[in-house]
Design a protein around this nucleic acid. Structure first.
Length: 490
RNA sequence: GGCGGCAUAGCCAAGUGGCUAAGGCAGCGGUCUGCAAAACCGUUAUUCUCCGGUUCAAAUCCGGAUGCCGCCUCCA
């Protein structure tokens, strides 16, 4: 089974063939560090995290580069507003970004370069373009001449003349063509600047990625990713810059993730519907957000809402319930596994192995996490059957099967970046979050449970049920098992 | 105006030419339980927005209609 990736450039699923056998170079556009990351950033991060994880699962040595834009108008604005330097703003939001990513089980990329550390690379690249007559400078600004690059528009499927008709382009007298874009921007009074052959200024946004990807991954690498909004102009311009300079396309596969909408509306500052990651994870266990996004294909839009997060939470609880059952059942079994599995056992282990293969095949097919999750839920059901329903199964046999199941779930979890928590810890965190969200007091709840327990021991079922009903009104659900009562929030 | 995408059950969502149209949530019936919860079993789309066409065969390909969405301006 070979890996297939949908390539934005060709708009087709293609069989993945890396430039260098066994290795993959991947570049993903990271954030501009001027504010906290929101749910949209979370999606892009999770999507490419899954790509990163799956490529590793498939045995590739992956060099994953995700940059930070730490010089930009928005950063300067913010720095001016707060009266601090741009370095302080960038460092602050990069730190918060890293925390948010860690909370979502997003693996740290191999290299996380900052634009301001690569000024020399950018200036050199612009110089090359200027020498080739593709870039031109006007009074300290340097522009890329789009009509000098015939392939311009190849990624986004646009033609220069058609774009002119749309005419929503930047008005700038210095440009020869309104679609020309800035490579180097002359600094205004009081703005941070770097020295260059064109005078003091700062790099344009697009050139950063061309310079950094080339620095770490070479002239042509395998995968370039980002949000779908970056297709035009950002990635189009990156291709133009890199290819005009080197004569080679910078990347072979262009991968773009779909957007997160909020209650069917576009997320935007004006609508006031921006959800920071750090706010969401106060309301839901971080893996809930992750599972929510993984349930849809990465190229489809997803609609963020309370209801969909709640659904994802219930689904995640389903998985963790199976994992907890598995853990407890295995802990009960002292005997070591039998050496020769019987036919009854191989029936289960074969099924588990099959689900594992199907899971990998789903991810091989353009990272189809939704389909892969289908197999995860099938496996969860199977685990529940083994731990609960198959009571007659001899313990050593269960031991063998559940060991296999544990391995399979470990594989699922590593591939998708979920199930990274111990089940007991997961339920504790989930309950803490819910209790806080609803303004409940754990101690009060536990006192009532204790009172109910006494009633139950006296077989005063009416009293016990009254207490349970009172708790149910507060969305507290009780679960009576041997010797103890546990509780959770509905 | 240009470019592109989407439309599958009550809701979310896979599936892109041929086995019974995944899975999750919600619902209903049952098993288990003092009763519950969870879990398990069964059940919920003769059909994939509509109309034509291609084909032995279409949710899947082609044409058209309708509706929704994104990009073209900073944006994951």
């Amino acid at each position: 089974m070979s890996l297939k990736i949908f390539n934005t450039r060709t708009r087709k699923k293609e069989t993945f063939v890396p430039v260098k056998e066994g290795a993959v170079g991947m570049y993903v556009c990271g954030i501009t560090a001027y504010d906290v990351c929101h749910v949209g950033h979370a999606r892009a991060a999770v999507v490419f995290d899954v790509v990163f994880r799956h490529l590793k699962t498939r045995g590739y040595t992956v060099t994953y580069v995700k940059n930070f834009t730490d010089i930009d108008d928005k950063i300067i604005d913010r720095a001016n507003k707060e009266g601090v330097g741009i370095g302080e703003i960038a460092s602050r939001y990069i730190k918060l970004h890293d925390e948010d990513m860690a909370s979502l089980n997003v693996l740290t990329p191999t290299v996380t370069p900052r634009a301001t550390d690569h000024m020399a690379d950018m200036i050199a690249l612009i110089k090359t373009l200027e020498e080739k007559g593709i870039a031109y400078s006007v009074e300290g600004d340097v522009f890329f001449a789009v009509d000098r690059f015939p392939a311009y528009g190849g990624l986004s499927g646009r033609h220069l003349d058609e774009m002119m008709a749309g005419a929503r382009v930047d008005v700038n007298d210095k440009k020869r063509n309104p679609l020309d874009f800035v490579l180097w921007k002359k600094s205004k009074e009081g703005e941070p600047f770097w020295e260059s052959p064109w005078g003091n200024g700062r790099p344009g946004w697009h050139i950063e990625c061309s310079a950094m990807s080339r620095r770490y991954l070479g002239e042509t690498f395998d995968i370039h990713g980002g949000g779908e909004d970056l297709i035009f102009p950002h990635h189009e311009n990156e291709i133009a810059q890199s290819q005009a300079a080197t004569g080679k396309p910078p990347a072979n596969y262009w991968v773009h993730n779909g957007f997160v909408k909020i209650n069917a509306e576009k997320m935007s500052k004006s609508l006031g519907n921006i959800f920071p990651i750090r706010e969401i994870v106060k309301q839901y266990h971080p893996e809930v957000l992750r599972l929510f996004m993984l349930q849809s294909h990465y190229r489809s839009p997803v609609d963020y809402s309370e209801a969909s997060l709640t659904e994802a939470r219930t689904a995640l609880i389903r998985c963790y319930t199976a994992l907890q059952q598995m853990k407890e059942t295995r802990a009960m079994i002292a005997e070591p596994g039998k050496e020769k599995p019987t036919a009854g056992e191989t029936q289960y282990t074969n099924k588990l192995d099959e689900l594992k293969s199907k899971f990998d095949a789903a991810l091989d097919d353009d990272f189809n996490t939704a389909q892969a999750l289908g197999y995860v839920f099938d496996a969860a059901r199977l685990v529940n059957q083994i731990t609960m329903a198959e009571k007659k199964m001899p313990m050593p046999a269960k031991q063998v099967i559940l060991a296999t199941a544990a391995d399979v779930f470990m594989h699922f979890g590593n591939g998708l970046g979920v199930f990274q928590s111990d089940p007991d810890v997961f339920f504790q965190v989930d309950r803490d979050v819910e209790v806080r969200k609803r303004g409940l007091k754990a101690a009060d709840i536990e006192a009532q449970i204790e009172e109910r327990q006494k009633a139950r021991e006296e077989k005063d079922w009416t009293r016990a049920d009254d207490i349970r009903q009172a708790l149910a009104l507060q969305k507290v659900t009780l679960k009576d098992s041997k010797g103890r009562t546990t509780w959770s929030i509905e």
